[in-house]
Structure formats: structure tokens, C-alpha cells
Design a protein around this nucleic acid. Structure first.
Length: 466
RNA sequence: GUCUCGGUGGCCGAGAGGCAAGGUACCCGGCUGCAACCCGGAGCACGGCGGUUCGAGUCCGCCCCGAGACUCCA
């Protein structure tokens, strides 16, 4: 595969063994997830599916940040605890992901279940001379000292000079403006939200960034192959995470840093702070949303609008209708017990093209190949042999399972004799232009869950409206 | 200001130096008892200026425009 590595700033041929370890930063559980989150997790879900399709054993870890400033703030506002707030939004997130056909990662660790690991890690950073303690009213803060780590800035492409500029007033107790918190001593609101943990530095809670270093190394070891997330995480989150992990383990912790671009709306980034979000839970059809998210290359922004969604819906419907047409034809040939000579249909050609597109995770291109297959299928629907139709069906479902579409599809059965008799009876009625009788039979079969469709080549059927 | 990523048809959006995918919209036609699909045709594009090359949307340089990061973010 060939993907853009943020660390080296170029497209690289991925050198992967049988096992591929992948970590993707999960959500901070303080609000409902929106379409921007959906994009990132759908993308990495497709990457995972494709790697598995190529025969890799993927170990996929995605954390939940369930203790953090924003969670505490919301908890205090609503008179709840940090645990209550994060529990709500973690379960909402899981619901959203299953609506989008995103498969569960192998591990989804929560920060609060790993406080001990985090403390050990912070202690180790202090011992190694990368971190220092600063007294505060309820205990100590611990900061990572950025100048002690030589390669800082490499991931985000920023020089130390640039990083010395700052927009907000830094805490004067820090030794350097770039230093960031590993451990934050408890404030009044933290006690109120029950978001405090005992530590060698008194009551407090982990800083943002440290959890990902700890959880990735704990579940995957170091180094691991793929680290992903949205583009907005490159700085400071991933820069800091890399610094922490490199400091502890003494090696480049991640081989390939992969980042997704944003979902925009009216050309602007969709984000909670701008208040222009569309929640996943408010979107009516998960698969259409998933399809939409795959229509742009992962490194380009994707603009959300009513009309772009509408276009995605139509494209999606075309593929879905083709799947039905294909399956209806297979079921009809089987039921009638007939076959045809075939046309020498080359479905494998589409598969090769599809893999070529997917090797660079070019999902819009992959969708375009998918559409060519569909067009070819529709053109040749009534001339392909049964084995050709089945070959197409197999490739069609290979595409859809890699992309995670049409997951609930149920195959159309061959008809039992008594129903087939009714279908034949109706054909006779239609031939005699007795449409009243034909419609009666159609209605009768509909009550038994069979929907009849008339084609130029005879009557076909399906079992449910999609 | 520094850094990163972009700029391709009416719109969305691929493009791996060698005939510019695919989708949608509009128009025309076919299929059709009804219904649901589907098929064919036509039209339509590489931000600008240089350079490298037999050949550049693709590589290099400069410029213009847009988005983002530098502050919580997927």
C-alpha cells in the first residue's frame, strides 16, 4: 500500500508484516459525535478491512479519553460526575459507529482504567530527566520539558522558533513555553466532578496526550506500524505523543502517521467550537452517510451540503439497485432452471482495478470502479450465464464488504413450486392483458413477502424493499 | 507571520509523465399495462506565468486564491 506519512511528508510504500498494529485516537467523551468524527473512523475502518482483505492480521486499538477539561466542565454544569458524562457519550459513540457499519476495534481502552499505567509512565519520564514537577495548591503538576527532547517539531513540521510563539499566556511556572502537562493537580471543579485520582503528586488527573502514549505502547508495544487520527491532532497532540513515547522507549515509536482531512461545511471546518456540526445521530441513513464519506480522498477536505448528500444518496441507490438486479436475475435463473451461453464477462478486471485504487486508499476511485462494475452488470444482465452472474455477485460483495456497504443485505431465495405457479399464472394473465388478475396475484404475493418486478425478460422478484 | 494541504466540467470528485475516471444536474432517445429498476446518446474542465521533457493535470520555481495548524478539536 502507498499512503502519505505525515512524519516524512511524502507518500510511502508501506512495508508491513503479517501482523499490522494500528492505533487511532478516539474521542473525548463530552458530547455527541458529528460527521467529522465519522469521517475519520470510517476511513480507518476501511483501511483495517482492506488490510485484512489483503491477508494481514490487524490489531486495532482506539482509546476513549474519559477524563479531561471539557468533560469536567460539562459534568459540573450538569451536576453530574465525570464518569456519568463520559459513560453517556461513550455509549452514544458506539451506537453511532454501529449505525455507520464501523467494526469494533480489538481494544477500546479508557483512560480512567489505566491511571496506574499513566502514573508509572510519568514517573519514568521524570527519572529519565524529560519531565519535572511544579508545586500547585492541591499537589504538583508534572510537565514534559520539550527542549530535553531533540526531535521535537518533526511531525508537525514546525521549528522550535515558531513553537516559541504562543497565543495564550503560558503558566509562568513552566521552564519553557513549549512544555506541556503530563499530570495536572486537582482543581475545585475536578473534586466536584469526581475526576481526581491519587498519585505521587497528590490528587490530580492525567494531562491530555499522555494517555495515547501509554495505551498504544501497552496494547501494541513500540514501535507499531500505523497511527491515525484527524488532521487537527497533528499538533499538539501527536507531536507531544511522539515526544513522550520516543523519550521513554528511545526509538521512533510509529512507522506511519496517517491523517484524515476535515469535513467542512460551506468551506469551513466542521467543529464544535464553530457550532456548525451535524451529528451522526441526527442523520437518517448510516450507509448513505458512510458512502458520502468515502466519496472524497482521505487527504482532501470533504464539503457537507444537502446537495452533496443527495448526490451520494443517488449514487448509493444505483449500486444498491444493481445488487438487487443481479441477485434477482440469479434467483430467477435458478428458479426457472435455465442458463445461458454467457458473454465472456471479465469481472476480475474490475477487481484488479479496485485493488489498485485501494492500495492508496483512494476510495473515490474505488467507488468509480464499483460503478463501472455496476454499469457492466446492468448492461449484460440478461445475457450473462449463471456462473458469470455469480462471479459478478461475488466481486460485488467483495467490494461492498471492503467498503462496509450493504451490510444488511439478504439474498433473494429461489421460489418454491406453489409460488412459481402463481408467477407463471400471472404471466399468462398479463399476456392476455387481464391486468386486474395480474395485479391481484401480485398483491397476494406481496402479502407473502414477495415483491414482483416485471422486466423485458420476464417477471423477477425480491423479498423486501430496500 | 511560520508551517501543512488544496485549486480539474453547471456542481461533486479521481488522476501512478503517455488518448482527462466516475457520479450528479440539464437536454435527447430507448425499455414499459401499471409499478420499480435499467440502457443508449449528446454536451461540458486541468487557477496564472515560466522551466525540465519527445511528451506535464502529473515533476521544479515563482505568483494568485482557498482551507487548516500554531488555542480545545476527528
Amino acid at each position: 500500500m502507498r499512503l502519505y506519512n505525515t512524519l516524512t511528508k511524502r507518500f510511502e510504500e508501506l512495508k508491513l508484516g503479517k501482523t499490522v498494529k494500528m492505533y487511532v485516537c478516539g474521542i473525548t467523551a463530552y458530547d455527541y459525535s458529528h460527521i467529522g468524527h465519522a469521517r475519520t473512523f470510517v476511513f480507518f475502518d476501511v483501511l483495517r478491512r482492506y488490510l485484512e482483505y489483503k491477508g494481514h492480521n490487524v490489531i486495532y486499538v482506539q482509546n476513549f479519553t474519559d477524563v479531561d477539561d471539557k468533560i469536567v466542565r460539562r459534568a459540573v454544569e450538569e451536576g453530574k460526575t465525570q464518569g456519568e458524562i463520559s459513560r453517556i457519550f461513550i455509549s452514544e459513540f458506539l451506537r453511532d459507529m454501529s449505525k455507520l457499519n464501523v467494526r469494533r476495534p480489538n481494544y477500546m481502552p479508557k483512560v480512567t482504567d489505566h491511571i496506574r499505567d499513566i502514573i508509572n509512565y510519568v514517573e519514568r519520564l521524570i527519572e529519565l530527566g524529560y519531565a519535572y514537577e511544579v508545586e500547585d495548591e492541591h499537589g504538583c503538576d508534572v510537565y514534559f520539558h520539550v527542549p530535553s527532547f531533540e526531535g521535537y517539531g518533526k511531525l508537525s513540521g514546525m521549528s522550535l522558533d515558531e513553537l516559541n510563539r504562543h497565543r495564550i499566556e503560558p503558566n509562568p511556572k513552566k521552564r519553557d513555553v513549549k512544555d506541556f502537562a503530563l499530570w495536572k493537580s486537582a482543581k475545585d471543579e475536578d473534586f466536584k466532578a469526581n475526576a481526581v485520582f491519587d498519585s505521587p503528586w497528590g490528587y490530580g488527573r492525567p494531562g491530555w496526550h499522555i494517555e495515547c502514549s501509554v495505551l498504544s505502547s501497552k496494547y501494541l508495544g513500540v514501535p507499531f506500524e500505523i497511527h491515525g487520527g484527524g488532521r487537527d491532532l497533528i499538533f499538539p497532540h501527536h507531536e507531544n505523543e511522539r515526544a513522550q513515547s520516543f523519550a521513554i522507549f528511545g526509538v521512533e515509536p510509529v512507522k506511519y502517521w496517517i491523517h484524515c482531512d476535515f469535513v467542512t461545511i460551506g468551506g469551513e471546518k466542521m467543529s464544535k467550537s464553530l457550532g456548525n456540526i451535524v451529528r451522526i445521530r441526527d442523520f437518517p441513513d448510516g450507509e448513505v452517510l458512510r458512502y458520502f464519506l468515502l466519496t472524497a480522498f482521505y487527504r482532501s477536505p470533504l464539503d457537507y451540503s444537502e446537495s452533496s448528500i443527495e448526490r451520494a444518496r443517488r449514487s448509493y441507490n444505483y449500486l444498491r439497485n444493481t445488487l438487487l438486479n443481479l441477485d434477482m436475475e440469479i434467483s430467477a435463473l435458478r428458479t426457472f432452471g435455465i442458463d445461458r451461453d454467457g458473454v465472456g464477462f471479465d469481472a476480475l478486471r474490475h477487481l484488479r482495478d479496485f485493488e489498485l485504487a485501494m492500495d492508496s486508499m483512494n476510495t473515490p476511485n474505488a467507488l468509480s470502479i464499483f460503478h463501472s462494475l455496476a454499469r457492466d452488470v446492468n448492461r449484460n444482465l440478461y445475457v450473462m450465464s449463471l456462473s458469470e452472474l455469480e462471479e459478478c455477485f461475488r466481486i460485488f460483495t467483495t467490494f461492498s464488504s471492503i467498503l462496509g456497504l450493504f451490510e444488511g443485505y439478504e439474498r433473494i431465495p429461489t421460489l418454491p413450486k406453489d409460488i412459481l405457479e402463481l408467477v407463471k399464472e400471472r404471466e399468462v394473465a398479463r399476456m392476455e392483458k387481464d391486468f386486474e388478475r395480474a395485479d391481484r396475484i401480485r398483491e397476494k404475493l406481496k402479502e407473502r413477502g414477495i415483491i414482483l418486478i416485471d422486466t423485458p425478460k420476464g417477471t423477477r422478484w425480491m423479498t423486501k424493499h430496500f
